Amino acid sequence: MAEDIRENAMSGGTPVRLRGLAANGNSISPTLEEVMNAMKIYTYSFTLAAKEEKDLGDLGYGMYLLASPNNAATAIYSVGAYQKCFVSDGGNNLFCDYTDGTKSVVFGRKTTNGNFFLKRGCKLNCVSKE
């Protein structure tokens, strides 16, 4: 049988599972992914070729944080139902929405209440074979 450990004597680290209570008061042990999904926090990681586009489905409305390791830059998007959305990348001019579509990373909706798409443009770090 496992040794009982007092709550304040537990060591730190990166958890695989968390402890908590369900709405009905029962004990639960969700994974980090289950907790993030319940909070509507989703993470994706893609490597896209030049001009490649990925359909991400309907992600709803909200704030989205994108990172581009190749360009060492990030951007935050505020997206509602429409194609045009607010984009800020700290003045790096690498990210845009589909109403612009001319930068290195294009993210957002193509149609009102449509799916979200992510596209790698060909402005930086890219050689087209056309």
Rank of each mutant, 00 (worst) to 15 (best):
Leu48Ser: 10
Asn115Lys: 14
Arg17Gln: 14
Gly13Thr: 08
Phe117Tyr: 15
Tyr42Ser: 01
Leu21Asn: 09
Tyr44Gly: 09
Ala50Gly: 06
Pro30Phe: 02
Phe116Asp: 02
Gly13Asn: 12
Lys54Thr: 06
Glu52Pro: 07
Val79Thr: 07
Met10Trp: 11
Gly62Glu: 06
Asp100Val: 12
Arg19Asp: 08
Leu56Asp: 05
Met1Pro: 13
Pro15Gly: 03
Leu124Arg: 07
Asn125Glu: 04
Ser27Gln: 12
Asn37Pro: 00
Arg17Met: 11
Ala22Val: 00
Tyr98Ile: 07
Gly108Leu: 05
Ser88His: 07
Asn37Ile: 02
Ala23Val: 10
Ser104Tyr: 03
Ile28Glu: 11
Pro15Cys: 02
Gly60Met: 04
Lys110Ala: 09
Thr112Ile: 11
Asp4Leu: 15
Ser104Trp: 03
Met1Asn: 13
Phe117Met: 01
Gly80Ala: 11
Ser128Cys: 08
Lys110Gln: 15
Gly121Tyr: 03
Pro69Leu: 07
Pro69Cys: 01
Thr102Val: 09
Glu34Phe: 00
Ser104Glu: 14
Pro30Thr: 05
Tyr64Lys: 02
Thr102Gly: 12
Cys96Ala: 10
Phe46Arg: 13
Val79Asn: 01
Gly12Val: 08
Glu53Cys: 05
Gly57Phe: 07
Val127Leu: 08
Asn24Ser: 14
Gly108Lys: 01
Lys129Arg: 03
Leu124Ile: 00
Thr112His: 11
Asp100Thr: 08
Ile41Leu: 09
Ile76Cys: 07
Glu3Asp: 13
Lys54Phe: 02
Gly13Arg: 10
Met1Gln: 11
Asp89Ala: 04
Leu56Pro: 02
Val105Glu: 10
Phe107Trp: 10
Thr112Val: 12
Arg120Tyr: 03
Tyr64Val: 05
Phe86Arg: 08
Ser88Met: 02
Lys103Pro: 03
Arg19Cys: 09
Val79Lys: 01
Leu94Gln: 12
Pro69Ala: 09
Ala38Val: 00
Ser104Phe: 02
Asn37Ala: 13
Gly121Lys: 05
Arg19Thr: 11
Val79Leu: 06
Ala9Met: 14
Tyr61Ser: 10
Asp58Gln: 13
Val105Ile: 15
Val105Gly: 11
Ala9Gly: 08
Ser78Phe: 05
Arg109Leu: 04
Phe86Leu: 08
Ser27Tyr: 12
Leu18Asp: 03
Ile28Phe: 04
Ile28Ser: 03
Ser88Asp: 14
Ala81Gly: 07
Lys119Pro: 00
Tyr42Ala: 01
Asp58Gly: 09
Asp89Arg: 04
Asn8Thr: 15
Asn24Cys: 09
Phe116Ala: 06
Lys103Val: 02
